[in-house]
């Protein structure tokens, strides 16, 4: 890294610290949430700087996009609580500056020093060695869908579970309309959605040999769907039993589970793909996992059980 890079990193770090501080301390909640979203976007830049483009894509779409949308839509349900003004923060928290800041600096310094000493041997060489038998070219995809596929299965499980848990709390408290509807948002949302679909398809296609793949693709698609909702589109899950949607939402998880069991039945271990079909199996899993992540992000965003009565009259409070 050259000097320019160093300076860039330093500026980025300062901006991130400032945003994180805003997100946790800012006087009003709206500002805190917006700071958090920008924080997510800048984190994506940091991930790129750290040569983790896959994470950058996921962070931008999920960390900033989906989480941000969730937070924003939660805001209008929460009592608008104005925090203290900045002047008062500086004055009232004198103790903070004497007590907290030095303690915090010491702790942070110690953590940094400890982490800097880590030898970090890494599994890069081992993973590269096993890549040939894995059925994919891109190492991160190989880890996600082959070496550590169990993690991925359970992770999609957590997402399904989150959807079930959120739905189990009853219908959403209010309409999923945005906090501050902008006149351009509906049009923007509808125009952008096809772009989201295209980007997602492209990421999915690239995934097996370059950064990209199921997670970023699913995340981008999910974020696009949420944008549509923000733009005022009606949720499509409407009937009482939710028609086939419950099955479709659980499909990604079910397909992965099925693949794992088939591996075991074929004489190998749980999740051991027969070598001949490994690359095809992973491709299928990737597509279903990506679609499923997109749909589940969308389902979770509904913030409650979609109900035929609940979303027809969208009164705001």
């Amino acid at each position: 890294m050259g000097l320019v890079g160093q300076v860039f990193d330093a500026l980025l770090a300062i901006a991130l610290v400032w945003l994180a501080w805003q997100a946790t301390r800012a006087a009003d909640l709206f500002r805190a949430v917006v700071s958090f979203i920008v924080f997510g976007l800048l984190m994506a830049v940091a991930w790129v700087r750290l040569e983790a483009p896959d994470i950058a894509l996921a962070e931008a779409a999920i960390g900033a996009g989906a989480t941000g949308a969730l937070l924003l839509s939660a805001l209008d349900r929460l009592a608008p609580r104005r925090g203290r003004s900045w002047a008062r923060v500086w004055r009232a928290d004198a103790r903070t500056w004497v007590l907290w800041v030095p303690a915090v600096m010491a702790l942070a310094g110690a953590l940094t020093a400890a982490a800097w000493q880590l030898p970090a041997p890494g599994l890069g060489a081992v993973a590269t060695g096993a890549l040939e038998q894995s059925g994919v070219d891109h190492a991160v995809t190989a880890v996600l869908l082959n070496f550590r596929a169990l993690d991925t299965l359970l992770e999609i499980g957590v997402l399904v579970l989150a959807a079930v848990a959120v739905w189990s709390m009853g219908p959403a408290p209010a309409a999923s309309a945005p906090v501050m509807p902008s006149p351009t948002l509906p049009m923007l949302g509808r125009t952008l959605f096809p772009v989201f679909v295209l980007v997602a398809a492209y990421l999915l296609w690239r995934g097996s040999h370059a950064p990209g793949g199921a997670f970023p693709a699913g995340a981008v698609l999910g974020a696009g769907g949420i944008l549509m909702l923000l733009a005022g589109a009606q949720p499509w899950i409407r009937s009482a039993e939710h028609g086939p949607w419950r099955a479709i939402l659980s499909a990604g998880f079910a397909v992965m589970l099925f693949a794992a069991i088939v591996g075991a039945l074929a004489g190998g271990a749980f999740f051991e793909y027969p070598a001949a079909i490994a690359s095809h199996a992973i491709l299928v899993l990737e597509v279903t996992a990506g679609m499923s992540i997109a749909l589940l992000l969308f389902a979770v965003y509904l913030r409650g059980e979609p109900h035929p009565a609940a979303d027809t009259d969208r009164q705001r409070c």
């Binding site: 994470i55 996921a58 599994l123 996600l144 993690d151 957590v158 959120v166 992000l297």
Partner: peptide, 22 residues
């Protein structure tokens, strides 16, 4: 060389974090 395993762990972690946040 660059280690892909933590990258996969973080990707998994991000999806879990959005689930728990929801």
């Amino acid at each position: 060389p660059l280690d892909p395993v933590p990258h996969a762990m973080v990707l998994t972690g991000i999806v879990i974090a959005v689930s728990t946040t929801a």
